[in-house]
Amino acid sequence: MDQSDIQTSNKKVVRNSILVVAAMFSFGYLLLPALYTLICDSFGLNGQTEQLTNAESAQLKVDKNRLVTIEFSSIVNSKLPWSFKPEVESVKIHPGELKRVNYLAKNLSGSDIVGQAIYSVTPVEAARHFKKTECFCFTQQRLKSGESKEMTVLFTVDTDLPKEIKTVTLSYTFFRADKYTSK
């Protein structure tokens, strides 16, 4: 190759490399978080569950031959001065059967506070079969000073839940979210 050919080829290498770099940066910064959420949603990784619309929930099949125990667990992050407890410790449901359960939250502090509940389903294999139509975790919750509130989750597990899973635990962690209310 003579000088000018090398120049052209060098420019090409630089251009292509910069394209790769830009693509990989976007992949890391923008795509990976989105992709991750997508993968987690579709495979139920990390205890992420699926949200059902009302229409979908109307068409649920119920498997009367099976009973699954659903346990409820609640955690309050120490930065949030609330109490938060499920009304029942566990329920037994048939796969496909919709069930409503209430949690009771109370603001123990002297000021208004916004909280956000983050859910987690264990075992992780059950997460993709765990469906909610209504949940207080879909939005942020604001409690006035001293206010108590019943918070509802309406859920089911689908009939494809693997046979060996007999107990599913639904856990919520409530975090203080005043800093993140601008959405």
Binding site: S78, K79, L80, P81, S83, L108, S109, R176, K179
Partner: peptide, 16 residues
Amino acid sequence: VVKGRPGTAMAAYANQ
């Protein structure tokens, strides 16, 4: 102590 200091490492001890 009870409510903590948001934005710092000082936790709220209300529940602890």
